[in-house]
Design a protein around this nucleic acid. Structure first.
Length: 477
RNA sequence: GGCGACGUAGCCAAGUGGUAAGGCAGAGGUCUGCAAAACCUCCAUCCCCAGUUCGAUUCUGGGCGUCGCCUCCA
Protein backbone atom coordinates (compact mmCIF):
# COMPACT_ATOMS: atom_id res chain seq x y z
CA UNK A 1 0.00 0.00 0.00
CA UNK A 2 1.19 3.46 -0.77
CA UNK A 3 0.97 6.59 1.30
CA UNK A 4 -2.27 8.47 0.91
CA UNK A 5 -2.81 11.93 2.33
CA UNK A 6 -5.87 14.10 2.66
CA UNK A 7 -5.23 17.14 0.50
CA UNK A 8 -7.22 20.17 1.60
CA UNK A 9 -6.90 21.59 -1.88
CA UNK A 10 -8.94 18.77 -3.43
CA UNK A 11 -10.77 17.65 -0.33
CA UNK A 12 -9.80 14.06 -1.00
CA UNK A 13 -7.25 11.47 -0.01
CA UNK A 14 -4.67 11.16 -2.73
CA UNK A 15 -1.73 8.89 -3.36
CA UNK A 16 1.31 10.93 -2.43
CA UNK A 17 4.11 11.38 -4.91
CA UNK A 18 6.73 14.11 -4.63
CA UNK A 19 7.82 16.13 -7.61
CA UNK A 20 11.38 14.89 -7.35
CA UNK A 21 11.61 11.14 -6.97
CA UNK A 22 12.53 10.13 -3.45
CA UNK A 23 12.76 13.68 -2.10
CA UNK A 24 10.01 15.60 -0.33
CA UNK A 25 10.05 19.34 0.11
CA UNK A 26 7.90 20.30 3.07
CA UNK A 27 7.10 23.70 4.51
CA UNK A 28 5.25 24.03 7.79
CA UNK A 29 3.97 27.11 9.57
CA UNK A 30 5.85 27.52 12.82
CA UNK A 31 5.28 29.65 15.89
CA UNK A 32 4.93 33.36 16.31
CA UNK A 33 7.35 33.88 19.13
CA UNK A 34 5.52 36.54 21.03
CA UNK A 35 4.77 34.22 23.93
CA UNK A 36 5.15 30.61 24.99
CA UNK A 37 3.60 28.12 22.61
CA UNK A 38 0.45 26.61 24.03
CA UNK A 39 -0.38 22.93 23.81
CA UNK A 40 -2.63 23.52 20.83
CA UNK A 41 0.27 25.05 18.91
CA UNK A 42 2.36 22.09 19.93
CA UNK A 43 -0.21 19.68 18.58
CA UNK A 44 0.35 21.13 15.13
CA UNK A 45 4.09 21.09 15.47
CA UNK A 46 4.04 17.47 16.55
CA UNK A 47 1.76 16.71 13.63
CA UNK A 48 4.47 18.04 11.32
CA UNK A 49 6.86 15.77 13.14
CA UNK A 50 4.58 12.80 12.51
CA UNK A 51 4.35 13.65 8.83
CA UNK A 52 8.08 13.88 8.38
CA UNK A 53 8.71 10.69 10.32
CA UNK A 54 6.26 8.74 8.24
CA UNK A 55 7.66 10.16 5.04
CA UNK A 56 11.00 8.81 6.12
CA UNK A 57 9.49 5.45 7.01
CA UNK A 58 8.04 5.52 3.50
CA UNK A 59 11.53 5.84 2.11
CA UNK A 60 11.72 9.52 1.33
CA UNK A 61 14.41 12.01 2.04
CA UNK A 62 12.70 15.04 3.53
CA UNK A 63 13.76 18.66 3.47
CA UNK A 64 11.67 20.30 6.13
CA UNK A 65 11.42 24.03 6.70
CA UNK A 66 9.57 25.57 9.63
CA UNK A 67 9.45 29.33 9.97
CA UNK A 68 9.66 31.41 13.11
CA UNK A 69 7.57 34.54 12.91
CA UNK A 70 9.54 37.11 14.84
CA UNK A 71 7.73 40.21 13.70
CA UNK A 72 4.01 40.89 13.86
CA UNK A 73 1.60 43.29 15.54
CA UNK A 74 1.57 41.48 18.86
CA UNK A 75 5.35 41.37 19.03
CA UNK A 76 5.51 45.06 18.24
CA UNK A 77 3.01 45.88 20.97
CA UNK A 78 4.68 43.73 23.56
CA UNK A 79 8.19 44.91 22.75
CA UNK A 80 7.02 48.50 22.89
CA UNK A 81 5.50 48.00 26.31
CA UNK A 82 8.57 46.19 27.55
CA UNK A 83 10.78 48.93 26.15
CA UNK A 84 13.04 46.61 24.23
CA UNK A 85 13.81 45.78 20.63
CA UNK A 86 11.80 43.08 18.94
CA UNK A 87 14.97 40.97 18.81
CA UNK A 88 15.44 41.18 22.56
CA UNK A 89 11.78 40.60 23.18
CA UNK A 90 11.43 37.45 21.06
CA UNK A 91 14.70 35.81 22.03
CA UNK A 92 13.51 34.00 25.18
CA UNK A 93 10.40 32.74 23.42
CA UNK A 94 12.44 31.34 20.56
CA UNK A 95 14.58 29.52 23.11
CA UNK A 96 11.50 28.25 24.90
CA UNK A 97 10.10 26.97 21.63
CA UNK A 98 13.15 24.87 20.92
CA UNK A 99 13.17 23.60 24.48
CA UNK A 100 9.55 22.55 24.20
CA UNK A 101 10.14 20.78 20.92
CA UNK A 102 13.13 18.94 22.35
CA UNK A 103 11.18 17.92 25.45
CA UNK A 104 8.47 16.53 23.19
CA UNK A 105 11.07 14.73 21.09
CA UNK A 106 10.18 16.45 17.84
CA UNK A 107 12.87 15.94 15.25
CA UNK A 108 14.56 19.11 14.17
CA UNK A 109 13.58 20.68 10.86
CA UNK A 110 16.35 21.34 8.38
CA UNK A 111 15.80 25.08 8.45
CA UNK A 112 14.12 27.46 10.88
CA UNK A 113 14.11 30.71 8.92
CA UNK A 114 13.09 33.85 10.75
CA UNK A 115 11.15 36.62 9.11
CA UNK A 116 13.48 39.40 10.19
CA UNK A 117 16.41 37.58 8.61
CA UNK A 118 14.75 37.35 5.21
CA UNK A 119 13.61 40.89 4.54
CA UNK A 120 15.47 41.11 1.20
CA UNK A 121 13.68 38.03 -0.14
CA UNK A 122 10.33 39.49 0.86
CA UNK A 123 11.14 42.89 -0.62
CA UNK A 124 12.08 41.22 -3.87
CA UNK A 125 8.85 39.28 -4.06
CA UNK A 126 6.78 42.34 -3.26
CA UNK A 127 8.61 44.26 -5.97
CA UNK A 128 7.76 41.53 -8.45
CA UNK A 129 4.11 41.64 -7.44
CA UNK A 130 4.06 45.42 -7.86
CA UNK A 131 5.61 45.13 -11.31
CA UNK A 132 3.08 42.59 -12.41
CA UNK A 133 0.12 44.56 -11.14
CA UNK A 134 -0.73 42.04 -8.45
CA UNK A 135 0.01 44.61 -5.78
CA UNK A 136 -0.37 48.35 -5.31
CA UNK A 137 1.05 50.97 -3.02
CA UNK A 138 -1.26 53.14 -0.97
CA UNK A 139 0.16 55.80 1.29
CA UNK A 140 3.35 53.87 2.05
CA UNK A 141 1.62 50.55 2.53
CA UNK A 142 1.61 47.86 -0.12
CA UNK A 143 -1.40 45.61 -0.63
CA UNK A 144 -2.02 42.49 -2.62
CA UNK A 145 -4.72 43.02 -5.22
CA UNK A 146 -7.03 40.05 -4.81
CA UNK A 147 -8.97 41.02 -7.91
CA UNK A 148 -5.82 40.19 -9.91
CA UNK A 149 -5.83 36.58 -8.75
CA UNK A 150 -8.92 34.72 -9.96
CA UNK A 151 -8.10 31.54 -8.10
CA UNK A 152 -8.42 33.23 -4.73
CA UNK A 153 -10.47 31.17 -2.28
CA UNK A 154 -9.82 27.78 -3.87
CA UNK A 155 -8.20 26.33 -0.78
CA UNK A 156 -10.70 27.42 1.84
CA UNK A 157 -13.63 27.17 -0.58
CA UNK A 158 -14.74 30.67 0.24
CA UNK A 159 -15.92 32.71 -2.69
CA UNK A 160 -15.35 36.40 -2.81
CA UNK A 161 -19.01 37.20 -2.37
CA UNK A 162 -18.94 35.26 0.89
CA UNK A 163 -15.86 37.10 1.98
CA UNK A 164 -17.41 40.44 1.36
CA UNK A 165 -20.45 39.49 3.42
CA UNK A 166 -18.28 38.34 6.28
CA UNK A 167 -15.86 41.23 6.24
CA UNK A 168 -16.18 43.61 9.13
CA UNK A 169 -16.56 47.25 8.32
CA UNK A 170 -13.82 48.29 10.71
CA UNK A 171 -11.07 47.22 8.30
CA UNK A 172 -11.98 50.13 6.08
CA UNK A 173 -9.67 52.55 7.82
CA UNK A 174 -6.98 51.59 5.30
CA UNK A 175 -6.92 52.94 1.84
CA UNK A 176 -7.56 49.64 0.13
CA UNK A 177 -9.17 48.97 -3.21
CA UNK A 178 -11.02 46.04 -1.76
CA UNK A 179 -11.65 45.13 1.86
CA UNK A 180 -10.18 41.69 1.31
CA UNK A 181 -6.88 42.97 -0.03
CA UNK A 182 -4.17 42.22 2.48
CA UNK A 183 -0.98 43.99 3.45
CA UNK A 184 2.34 42.93 1.98
CA UNK A 185 4.23 45.83 3.47
CA UNK A 186 3.31 48.26 6.21
CA UNK A 187 4.70 51.76 6.35
CA UNK A 188 7.10 52.36 9.22
CA UNK A 189 5.71 54.22 12.19
CA UNK A 190 7.97 56.37 14.40
CA UNK A 191 7.74 53.82 17.23
CA UNK A 192 8.77 51.00 14.91
CA UNK A 193 12.20 52.57 14.51
CA UNK A 194 12.90 52.48 18.23
CA UNK A 195 12.34 48.76 18.49
CA UNK A 196 14.19 47.76 15.37
CA UNK A 197 11.11 46.98 13.32
CA UNK A 198 11.71 48.99 10.16
CA UNK A 199 13.62 48.25 6.97
CA UNK A 200 14.35 50.09 3.76
CA UNK A 201 12.62 49.09 0.57
CA UNK A 202 12.19 50.62 -2.89
CA UNK A 203 8.54 51.22 -2.06
CA UNK A 204 9.27 52.90 1.25
CA UNK A 205 10.63 52.17 4.69
CA UNK A 206 8.50 49.74 6.65
CA UNK A 207 8.00 46.16 7.75
CA UNK A 208 6.58 43.08 6.08
CA UNK A 209 3.00 41.90 6.45
CA UNK A 210 2.54 38.52 7.95
CA UNK A 211 1.74 36.37 4.94
CA UNK A 212 4.63 37.33 2.71
CA UNK A 213 7.25 35.70 4.91
CA UNK A 214 6.07 32.18 4.19
CA UNK A 215 5.95 32.78 0.45
CA UNK A 216 9.41 34.31 0.40
CA UNK A 217 11.13 31.93 2.77
CA UNK A 218 9.65 28.75 1.35
CA UNK A 219 10.86 29.85 -2.09
CA UNK A 220 14.29 30.62 -0.73
CA UNK A 221 14.76 27.18 0.83
CA UNK A 222 12.52 24.90 -1.21
CA UNK A 223 11.86 26.56 -4.54
CA UNK A 224 8.69 27.64 -6.29
CA UNK A 225 6.71 24.46 -5.71
CA UNK A 226 6.37 22.63 -2.42
CA UNK A 227 5.35 19.00 -2.20
CA UNK A 228 3.68 19.52 1.15
CA UNK A 229 2.58 22.60 3.02
CA UNK A 230 1.11 22.02 6.46
CA UNK A 231 -0.43 24.10 9.19
CA UNK A 232 -3.31 24.34 11.62
CA UNK A 233 -6.81 24.66 10.20
CA UNK A 234 -7.08 28.20 11.44
CA UNK A 235 -4.34 29.17 9.02
CA UNK A 236 -6.25 27.93 6.03
CA UNK A 237 -7.98 31.26 5.72
CA UNK A 238 -6.68 33.80 5.23
CA UNK A 239 -3.02 32.92 5.74
CA UNK A 240 -2.62 29.97 3.38
CA UNK A 241 -4.98 31.43 0.86
CA UNK A 242 -2.86 34.57 0.81
CA UNK A 243 0.35 32.61 0.49
CA UNK A 244 -1.01 30.86 -2.57
CA UNK A 245 -2.04 34.16 -4.13
CA UNK A 246 1.34 35.80 -3.50
CA UNK A 247 3.48 32.88 -4.56
CA UNK A 248 1.56 31.87 -7.63
CA UNK A 249 1.18 35.45 -8.80
CA UNK A 250 4.91 36.01 -8.34
CA UNK A 251 6.26 32.66 -9.55
CA UNK A 252 3.66 31.53 -12.05
CA UNK A 253 4.02 28.01 -10.66
CA UNK A 254 1.78 25.95 -8.46
CA UNK A 255 2.73 26.85 -4.89
CA UNK A 256 1.99 23.68 -2.94
CA UNK A 257 0.81 20.35 -4.32
CA UNK A 258 -0.56 18.94 -1.08
CA UNK A 259 -2.00 20.96 1.77
CA UNK A 260 -2.29 19.31 5.17
CA UNK A 261 -4.27 20.89 8.00
CA UNK A 262 -4.36 19.66 11.55
CA UNK A 263 -7.39 20.23 13.73
CA UNK A 264 -7.61 22.28 16.88
CA UNK A 265 -7.00 21.33 20.45
CA UNK A 266 -9.74 22.24 22.84
CA UNK A 267 -9.49 22.80 26.54
CA UNK A 268 -11.36 20.83 29.18
CA UNK A 269 -14.39 23.09 28.93
CA UNK A 270 -14.67 22.48 25.20
CA UNK A 271 -13.40 25.88 24.14
CA UNK A 272 -10.83 26.17 21.39
CA UNK A 273 -7.48 26.87 22.92
CA UNK A 274 -6.26 30.21 21.77
CA UNK A 275 -3.82 32.79 22.94
CA UNK A 276 -6.01 35.75 22.21
CA UNK A 277 -9.06 34.24 23.89
CA UNK A 278 -7.22 34.20 27.18
CA UNK A 279 -6.97 30.82 28.86
CA UNK A 280 -4.38 28.54 27.37
CA UNK A 281 -2.10 25.86 28.67
CA UNK A 282 1.60 25.62 27.97
CA UNK A 283 3.83 22.57 28.09
CA UNK A 284 5.41 24.08 31.17
CA UNK A 285 2.03 24.20 32.91
CA UNK A 286 1.44 20.52 32.25
CA UNK A 287 4.91 19.46 33.32
CA UNK A 288 4.58 21.44 36.52
CA UNK A 289 1.32 19.64 37.16
CA UNK A 290 3.23 16.37 37.06
CA UNK A 291 2.62 15.22 33.50
CA UNK A 292 5.38 13.46 31.62
CA UNK A 293 6.33 15.16 28.34
CA UNK A 294 6.33 11.77 26.64
CA UNK A 295 2.75 11.20 27.73
CA UNK A 296 1.88 14.64 26.39
CA UNK A 297 3.55 13.77 23.11
CA UNK A 298 1.60 10.54 22.89
CA UNK A 299 -1.62 12.31 23.72
CA UNK A 300 -1.10 14.97 21.08
CA UNK A 301 -0.22 12.69 18.18
CA UNK A 302 -1.81 9.34 19.00
CA UNK A 303 -4.92 10.01 21.04
CA UNK A 304 -6.93 11.23 18.07
CA UNK A 305 -6.49 11.43 14.31
CA UNK A 306 -4.89 14.70 13.26
CA UNK A 307 -8.01 15.87 11.44
CA UNK A 308 -10.20 15.35 14.50
CA UNK A 309 -10.64 17.80 17.24
CA UNK A 310 -8.95 16.84 20.44
CA UNK A 311 -9.90 17.84 23.93
CA UNK A 312 -7.28 18.26 26.60
CA UNK A 313 -8.23 16.69 29.91
CA UNK A 314 -6.37 15.23 32.81
CA UNK A 315 -8.14 11.92 32.25
CA UNK A 316 -7.02 11.72 28.64
CA UNK A 317 -3.51 12.70 29.63
CA UNK A 318 -3.48 10.01 32.27
CA UNK A 319 -4.70 7.43 29.76
CA UNK A 320 -1.91 8.47 27.42
CA UNK A 321 0.64 8.11 30.20
CA UNK A 322 -0.61 4.60 30.88
CA UNK A 323 -0.27 3.65 27.25
CA UNK A 324 3.26 4.97 27.12
CA UNK A 325 4.02 3.04 30.26
CA UNK A 326 2.59 -0.16 28.80
CA UNK A 327 4.59 0.22 25.62
CA UNK A 328 7.83 0.82 27.47
CA UNK A 329 7.12 -1.96 29.89
CA UNK A 330 6.46 -4.36 27.06
CA UNK A 331 9.55 -3.41 25.12
CA UNK A 332 11.67 -3.80 28.22
CA UNK A 333 10.15 -7.17 28.93
CA UNK A 334 10.66 -8.55 25.43
CA UNK A 335 14.22 -7.42 25.43
CA UNK A 336 15.15 -8.87 28.79
CA UNK A 337 13.24 -12.14 28.66
CA UNK A 338 15.40 -15.09 27.57
CA UNK A 339 14.10 -16.78 24.43
CA UNK A 340 12.10 -19.96 24.73
CA UNK A 341 13.44 -23.03 22.98
CA UNK A 342 11.00 -22.80 20.10
CA UNK A 343 8.87 -20.20 18.40
CA UNK A 344 5.13 -19.84 18.57
CA UNK A 345 3.91 -19.93 14.97
CA UNK A 346 0.58 -18.31 15.78
CA UNK A 347 2.29 -15.42 17.48
CA UNK A 348 4.69 -15.09 14.59
CA UNK A 349 1.89 -14.79 12.08
CA UNK A 350 -0.08 -12.42 14.25
CA UNK A 351 2.94 -10.18 14.69
CA UNK A 352 3.51 -10.04 10.96
CA UNK A 353 -0.17 -9.23 10.39
CA UNK A 354 -0.11 -6.48 13.00
CA UNK A 355 3.04 -4.94 11.57
CA UNK A 356 1.34 -4.81 8.18
CA UNK A 357 -1.87 -3.40 9.63
CA UNK A 358 0.06 -0.76 11.54
CA UNK A 359 1.85 0.34 8.40
CA UNK A 360 -1.40 0.40 6.49
CA UNK A 361 -3.06 2.58 9.10
CA UNK A 362 -0.23 5.10 8.88
CA UNK A 363 -0.28 4.97 5.10
CA UNK A 364 -3.95 5.80 5.23
CA UNK A 365 -3.65 9.49 5.97
CA UNK A 366 -1.53 8.96 9.06
CA UNK A 367 -4.11 7.15 11.14
CA UNK A 368 -1.90 6.63 14.15
CA UNK A 369 -4.77 6.03 16.62
CA UNK A 370 -5.90 3.09 14.55
CA UNK A 371 -2.37 1.78 14.25
CA UNK A 372 -1.88 1.97 17.99
CA UNK A 373 -5.08 0.03 18.51
CA UNK A 374 -3.91 -3.02 16.61
CA UNK A 375 -0.54 -2.88 18.34
CA UNK A 376 -2.04 -2.96 21.82
CA UNK A 377 -4.14 -5.90 20.80
CA UNK A 378 -0.96 -7.79 19.99
CA UNK A 379 0.83 -6.63 23.10
CA UNK A 380 -1.77 -8.35 25.20
CA UNK A 381 -1.31 -11.61 23.35
CA UNK A 382 2.44 -11.34 23.41
CA UNK A 383 2.44 -10.67 27.13
CA UNK A 384 0.38 -13.80 27.64
CA UNK A 385 2.91 -15.74 25.57
CA UNK A 386 5.71 -14.29 27.66
CA UNK A 387 3.87 -15.29 30.81
CA UNK A 388 3.87 -18.88 29.64
CA UNK A 389 7.42 -18.81 28.28
CA UNK A 390 6.45 -19.37 24.66
CA UNK A 391 8.38 -16.60 22.97
CA UNK A 392 11.18 -17.98 20.84
CA UNK A 393 14.07 -16.17 19.14
CA UNK A 394 12.19 -15.41 15.95
CA UNK A 395 9.15 -14.23 17.89
CA UNK A 396 11.34 -11.99 19.92
CA UNK A 397 13.00 -10.46 16.88
CA UNK A 398 9.63 -9.84 15.26
CA UNK A 399 8.22 -8.21 18.37
CA UNK A 400 11.24 -5.96 18.70
CA UNK A 401 10.78 -5.11 15.03
CA UNK A 402 7.23 -4.10 15.72
CA UNK A 403 8.32 -1.89 18.58
CA UNK A 404 10.80 -0.24 16.24
CA UNK A 405 8.05 0.33 13.67
CA UNK A 406 5.87 2.00 16.25
CA UNK A 407 8.63 3.98 17.85
CA UNK A 408 9.61 5.38 14.47
CA UNK A 409 6.54 7.57 14.91
CA UNK A 410 5.93 7.70 18.62
CA UNK A 411 9.51 7.89 19.81
CA UNK A 412 8.52 7.28 23.39
CA UNK A 413 9.77 3.74 23.89
CA UNK A 414 13.45 3.98 23.34
CA UNK A 415 13.68 7.48 24.77
CA UNK A 416 16.78 7.12 26.87
CA UNK A 417 16.43 6.56 30.57
CA UNK A 418 18.95 7.97 32.98
CA UNK A 419 21.54 5.29 33.77
CA UNK A 420 21.06 3.21 36.87
CA UNK A 421 21.98 5.39 39.77
CA UNK A 422 24.44 3.61 42.03
CA UNK A 423 22.42 4.61 45.03
CA UNK A 424 19.31 2.92 43.70
CA UNK A 425 21.27 -0.25 43.09
CA UNK A 426 22.69 -0.10 46.58
CA UNK A 427 19.25 0.39 48.11
CA UNK A 428 17.85 -2.48 46.09
CA UNK A 429 20.63 -4.66 47.44
CA UNK A 430 19.87 -3.54 50.95
CA UNK A 431 16.22 -4.27 50.46
CA UNK A 432 16.95 -7.73 49.10
CA UNK A 433 18.94 -8.52 52.24
CA UNK A 434 16.06 -7.33 54.36
CA UNK A 435 13.64 -9.45 52.38
CA UNK A 436 15.80 -12.52 52.72
CA UNK A 437 15.82 -11.88 56.46
CA UNK A 438 12.02 -11.47 56.21
CA UNK A 439 12.36 -7.96 57.60
CA UNK A 440 9.45 -6.70 55.52
CA UNK A 441 9.06 -3.50 57.46
CA UNK A 442 12.52 -2.40 56.40
CA UNK A 443 11.98 -3.74 52.90
CA UNK A 444 8.78 -1.81 52.38
CA UNK A 445 10.27 1.31 53.83
CA UNK A 446 13.02 1.31 51.24
CA UNK A 447 10.53 0.76 48.47
CA UNK A 448 8.28 3.54 49.73
CA UNK A 449 11.16 5.96 50.07
CA UNK A 450 12.22 5.32 46.49
CA UNK A 451 8.65 5.60 45.29
CA UNK A 452 8.41 9.04 46.79
CA UNK A 453 11.48 10.01 44.82
CA UNK A 454 9.94 8.81 41.59
CA UNK A 455 11.43 5.34 41.41
CA UNK A 456 9.19 2.30 41.46
CA UNK A 457 10.48 -1.17 42.30
CA UNK A 458 8.92 -4.31 40.95
CA UNK A 459 9.67 -7.78 42.19
CA UNK A 460 9.55 -10.71 39.84
CA UNK A 461 11.07 -14.12 39.41
CA UNK A 462 13.74 -12.56 37.24
CA UNK A 463 14.76 -10.18 40.01
CA UNK A 464 14.04 -6.63 41.03
CA UNK A 465 13.44 -3.98 38.39
CA UNK A 466 13.23 -0.26 38.85
CA UNK A 467 11.81 2.42 36.67
CA UNK A 468 11.07 6.10 36.76
CA UNK A 469 7.52 7.16 37.53
CA UNK A 470 5.92 10.41 38.57
CA UNK A 471 6.94 11.08 42.18
CA UNK A 472 4.12 10.50 44.63
CA UNK A 473 2.67 13.76 45.77
CA UNK A 474 2.79 15.25 42.28
CA UNK A 475 -0.89 15.80 41.77
CA UNK A 476 -2.41 15.71 38.36
CA UNK A 477 -4.19 18.85 37.27
C1' G B 1 -26.14 35.57 7.47
C1' G B 2 -22.38 32.35 4.34
C1' C B 3 -19.19 27.90 4.42
C1' G B 4 -17.94 23.51 7.08
C1' A B 5 -17.19 19.67 10.87
C1' C B 6 -18.78 16.57 14.50
C1' G B 7 -22.46 13.59 17.79
C1' U B 8 -19.82 5.54 18.95
C1' A B 9 -19.72 2.51 26.43
C1' G B 10 -18.37 6.58 32.88
C1' C B 11 -14.01 9.11 29.90
C1' C B 12 -10.78 9.18 25.28
C1' A B 13 -11.15 6.90 20.59
C1' A B 14 -10.80 3.63 15.63
C1' G B 15 -13.95 1.73 12.20
C1' U B 16 -16.97 -1.10 8.25
C1' G B 17 -23.27 -1.84 4.15
C1' G B 18 -23.69 -7.86 7.14
C1' U B 19 -24.81 -8.17 13.97
C1' A B 20 -18.95 -2.51 17.00
C1' A B 21 -10.47 -2.11 17.36
C1' G B 22 -7.79 -0.21 21.29
C1' G B 23 -6.65 2.68 25.82
C1' C B 24 -8.24 4.82 30.63
C1' A B 25 -11.53 4.21 34.70
C1' G B 26 -14.55 0.32 37.34
C1' A B 27 -15.84 -4.97 39.19
C1' G B 28 -14.21 -9.99 40.01
C1' G B 29 -10.12 -13.52 39.56
C1' U B 30 -4.78 -15.80 38.78
C1' C B 31 0.15 -14.69 40.53
C1' U B 32 2.72 -12.35 44.97
C1' G B 33 5.35 -11.88 52.00
C1' C B 34 2.55 -7.39 50.65
C1' A B 35 2.58 -4.66 46.36
C1' A B 36 3.54 -3.67 41.32
C1' A B 37 3.65 -5.60 36.51
C1' A B 38 1.30 -9.19 33.49
C1' C B 39 -2.72 -12.28 32.24
C1' C B 40 -8.10 -14.02 32.48
C1' U B 41 -13.42 -12.66 32.95
C1' C B 42 -17.28 -8.75 32.95
C1' C B 43 -18.72 -3.72 31.11
C1' A B 44 -22.09 -0.23 24.03
C1' U B 45 -26.18 -2.11 19.24
C1' C B 46 -23.16 3.48 17.54
C1' C B 47 -28.16 11.37 19.12
C1' C B 48 -33.59 11.06 17.19
C1' C B 49 -37.06 10.19 13.02
C1' A B 50 -38.02 8.69 8.05
C1' G B 51 -36.17 6.46 3.54
C1' U B 52 -32.94 3.20 0.23
C1' U B 53 -31.48 -2.07 1.02
C1' C B 54 -32.31 -8.97 2.05
C1' G B 55 -29.56 -6.19 5.82
C1' A B 56 -27.22 0.58 8.08
C1' U B 57 -23.66 2.60 13.24
C1' U B 58 -21.74 2.89 8.26
C1' C B 59 -25.79 5.57 2.25
C1' U B 60 -29.95 9.60 1.50
C1' G B 61 -33.33 13.29 3.62
C1' G B 62 -35.19 15.82 7.93
C1' G B 63 -34.67 17.10 13.10
C1' C B 64 -32.04 18.03 17.67
C1' G B 65 -27.35 19.11 19.85
C1' U B 66 -22.15 20.69 20.04
C1' C B 67 -18.33 23.24 17.66
C1' G B 68 -15.05 25.63 13.93
C1' C B 69 -13.98 29.20 9.95
C1' C B 70 -15.69 33.77 7.64
C1' U B 71 -11.26 38.86 12.10
C1' C B 72 -5.03 38.12 15.05
C1' C B 73 -4.74 32.71 15.80
C1' A B 74 -1.33 26.06 15.26
Amino acid sequence: MTLRLHNTLTGAKEAFEPLEKGHVRMYTCGPTIWNYAHVGNLRSFLFYDLVRRHLRVSGYRVTHVMNLTDIDDRILDQAMHAGMSIGEYTKPYATAFFEDMAALRAERADHYPRATEHIPEMVEMIATLLERGNAYAADGDVYFRIASFPGYGALSHLDRAGLRAGARVATDKYDKENVSDFALWKKAQPEDEKIGAAWDAPFGRGRPGWHIECSAMSKRYLGDTLDIHAGGVDLMFPHHENEIAQSEAANHQQFARVWLHSEHLFDATGEKMSKSAGGFTTLRDLVEAGHDPLAIRFFLIANAHYRSRLRLSSEALHAAAEQVRRLREFFDRVERTPSAASDDEGLEQKTAAVRAAYREALDDDLNLPQGIGVVFDLIREANAALDSDQVGPRNKASLLGLIDDVDAHLDVVRAEEPGLAEEVERLIGERESARRARDFARSDQIRDDLRRRGIALEDSKAGVRWRRVAPTGAERS
